[in-house]
Design a protein around this nucleic acid. Structure first.
Lengths: 238, 238
DNA sequence: CGAACAGTTGATCAGGATCAACTCGAGTGG
DNA sequence: CCACTCGAGTTGATCCTGATCAACTGTTCG
């Protein structure tokens, strides 16, 4: 019932068969959403946490004047609102592609965490990774040029898509538009467009239509000062 | 041994006397640091997590060219590197004032979390709050003007100082320099200085020497589009 | 008394925003 | 089948927020 999520968790902790069953049992319902649909909205109350079982989505905050800041992009297996298990929700989530969403009752999650330290441990690691990504984005928005910021984001996305098994060689479906990139990086669409053209002209990446092609991975990493260490890839040991 | 930390935790969960004792027992050593001292450095290995028992400090990442991005400011009771209990360290921490640091062995922390779901619950909430603050900072750096960003940060700091009992009425010791503010907001020192002058001229806040005086709280909140909801103040219930 | 650091001021520069128009599909409906 | 729309991407021109550079003040502290 929650395949991708369990798989994601297993990258960080070993779980016994019994524990794995508990995780499987967390998802009480499934729900399909089309692309561009709101998964949940800032301030909305709910007793369920949302698991992204399939598809891609993003979290964002909306400003009073209609602009928005995208906070993170998500791949299958991500927990969108663990937050909610403990306190109020202060951001929204929207799908980029058609998505399968799993609903896990917050009480079930809390119970599982209480009864199975290993499961809690895995969830910890997921949310610490999230924090690590936030920190990296802050460095970008605070101190990097648009050029480096965009290159860095693309590197991060490629890395995450790869570990989620969503890259075919050097290419991947990339559902985010230039407007999404702009909203995640604190840039205007126009400038984002121009920088993407520069990256293309330099033979580093191509991003056209909904497809991303990495032409020069090393060069792209250099352009974005990207070091994947913060993503703590596949380290199981604590 | 870990008074302020326990008090901080108790804002978020109720703990039995036994559980409180476990928390007290986490701090195996104490250490005093002068102002401006490095608490730990990016990449540095350690088997202990650092608790800020007294004083103020900040986390930051350093760039290759010597610039830095400040990630968060901390008050007594904050856990500086829970991160470390699970994975590698990718940021540094430095004191703003003389500090008392508590060392909690990572194994002890993990054991306490495994054995006492309530303690784990409290730690979760601390780190979720942290994430919430990160998100708010991202909105600021991505989408707010320097003016709103600075006002917002001051609002946030005032609120946190208040809950930490560090405000005397409308004033507080404020150890961060303009350079610190600039490094946390992604601005230059010069511009930070000018905006602070504007806020002063408008009668919103005064920040001189190491003292902060709030002159017009409502006005300051308006200038920073500040809404304290994301800080989840003192909500014990989950 | 002289560093050394924090804060301040002025002048100039530039990265990126904003505004406006236009292209290019991919639907969609008549 | 064509006209129409609508969203994404692109281009050019102009503007402005905030960066950078450089100098100077004031204060603290050894």
């Amino acid at each position: 019932m929650s395949g991708r999520f369990l798989a994601n968790l297993l990258k960080y902790v070993e779980l016994s068969a019994a524990e794995q069953e508990v995780v499987e049992g967390l998802v009480a319902q499934r729900r399909s959403l089309p692309a561009g649909a709101e998964v949940f909205r800032e301030g909305e109350a709910s007793s369920d946490c949302r698991l992204l079982l399939d598809g891609q989505a993003f979290r964002h905050k909306n400003l009073s004047d209609g602009r928005r800041q995208i906070l993170s992009f998500h791949v299958p297996g991500d927990l969108l609102d663990l937050q909610r298990a403990f306190q109020g929700m202060e951001y929204s989530a929207t799908t980029l592609t058609p998505c399968e969403i799993g609903l896990a009752p917050r009480t079930a999650l809390l119970a599982a965490m209480g009864a199975h330290p290993k499961i809690a441990h895995g969830l910890w690691r997921l949310s610490l990774m999230e924090s690590a990504i936030y920190r990296e984005w802050m460095v970008g928005m605070g101190r990097r040029t648009a050029y480096a910021r965009i290159a860095h984001l693309l590197c991060e996305q490629v890395t995450r898509l790869k570990t989620a098994g969503l890259m075919q060689g050097e290419r991947a479906r990339f559902p985010a538009t230039q407007a999404h990139l702009a909203d995640s990086l604190g840039l205007s669409v126009v400038h984002t467009n121009r920088v993407l053209q520069a990256l293309r002209a330099e033979g580093l990446v191509e991003l056209r239509g909904r497809e991303l092609v990495v032409l020069d991975w090393k060069g792209l990493c250099a352009a974005g000062e990207f070091d994947s260490a913060y993503l703590n890839l596949g380290r199981r040991a604590a």
